[in-house]
Amino acid sequence: MSEYIEWSALGQVVLFGLIVGAGLPALFAVGVRALAGTGARDEDGHVRGSRAAVAIACFAVIIAAIVGAIVYIAAGGH
């Protein structure tokens, strides 16, 4: 089989696929939880500053990843 499957390439796809393809959704979930999970809002109904900061950090990483992906597609790296 080994002559038919490029194991190293496949391994990299799986490894980075998990990091990016599962990691980014998880990060998004962390952001959502920070904004809307229990304890996200103080008594006045405002989102607590610390929680908002966590959410913004998460979403910023995700937006950076999306921009990176678009640049990558446009650069013909596919």
Binding site: L18, G21, L24, P25, V32, R33, A36, G37
Partner: peptide
Amino acid sequence: ILVASVGTALVTRLTKDVPQESNDKMF
């Protein structure tokens, strides 16, 4: 299947105490 199932498992665990409505809206 591997990547998406790991992703889904992480996401649903992380957001299980978030109201469904907020989840739907943001996701």
